[in-house]
Amino acid sequence: MRYNWLLAFAATVAAIAPASAQSLKAGIEAWQKADYDAAVAIWRPLAEKGDADAAFNLGQAYRLGRGVPVNLGAAQTWFERAARKGHLDAQTTLGLLLFQNGNQAGGLRWLRMAAEQGEPRALLIYGTALFNGDGVSRDPVLGYAYVSRSAAQGLGAAKATLEEMDGVLPLEVRKKGLAIAMAKAKEAPPPAPAKPVPARKAPREPVESAKPLAETAKKAVQSPASPATGAWRIQLGAFSKRASAEDLYRKVSGNSALAGRKPFYVSAGPVTRLQVGPYISRAAAQAACNGLRPQACFPVAAQ
């Protein structure tokens, strides 16, 4: 008898759950079954009515080209609608998307907002920008604090960047940064209470797919507007004649991956090595190499 009562109670709770939550769940289930057309059809009317989760999901669909053609303009529109309603993933993804596409100021504005709420990807990118003075006033102490908070949450790229910062920043600066990081962590708003319907969360696959954008955004850190710093370079080749190294640099110097950097012609016995830099970390140098493909390239520590 009690069992029947529990079943009835569960059915009642399901019946009174918000219709939008139930519909959002149906869209997530369709997405997980790779029925992207159905998922988009479910989310669109909800997003148009102002549902932030649905707007974020729809933005991911446009960004990934699932259920709709790839359209980064439409993706940005839906991300911004969700971001303006306080959707943390939307703020981060929008910031990264804008940063990647050259709107540094707009991207950093949203990334800062997400970073203040403790989002690890936003903490990494905004913290690195602060460290470099890239699009914001240079503040290595605060930059170290932000990256430290990101690394503390387990983000691998943040751990690697923090290790590089440890190698170039004085101990006193790092201590100040850690103190700020601890204070900000205590001031961070507590986690939002669990929602009555867990399925209102954004579908996992699109959220995870957004994470590589963090590494893409790191390629742009250290703009020509501020002097590049760091202990890493990229090596493009070794030549018997310096003139050959200079010729290669002239061919690749227009590549955006080398923006704000300068060539180094390093003599090593009978050869001249062409290196370009500096870069803040090995990861940043590797990202620059990736941007130069098919040109052979690898990161090296500055001598």
Rank of each mutant, 00 (worst) to 15 (best):
F9A: 14
K85L: 14
A157K: 03
A19F: 03
V173W: 05
W78C: 02
D134A: 14
Q275M: 02
F298E: 05
A114W: 06
A185W: 04
E80W: 01
K201I: 06
A114T: 06
A34S: 11
L169F: 11
A10K: 05
N255I: 00
W43T: 08
D89P: 03
K211A: 09
P191R: 05
A151Y: 02
G135Y: 00
A217R: 01
A296D: 08
P299N: 07
N290V: 11
K251T: 12
V173E: 07
L94G: 02
G73I: 04
L58S: 00
S244N: 15
T161F: 14
E48Y: 09
Y279D: 07
A55I: 01
V70L: 10
A54H: 14
L142S: 05
L248F: 00
K241Y: 00
Y126H: 14
R2P: 12
H87T: 01
E208G: 00
V40T: 11
K25S: 14
V173T: 11
D37R: 12
G27W: 01
R81P: 00
S20Y: 07
Y249D: 06
A129L: 07
A145R: 09
A114Y: 10
A231S: 15
F264M: 12
L169R: 12
S148L: 09
L97C: 10
R293F: 03
P299W: 07
G143L: 09
A301N: 04
V207S: 06
M1P: 08
G107L: 05
A17C: 15
A54P: 13
G133K: 13
E215M: 14
A245R: 03
G230V: 06
A145I: 10
R121I: 12
F99G: 02
A181T: 09
R273I: 01
T161W: 14
S226T: 14
R121K: 15
E215D: 12
D53T: 14
D166G: 12
Y126P: 07
V221K: 04
Q60R: 00
A8Y: 04
A210I: 08
D51V: 13
P190R: 07
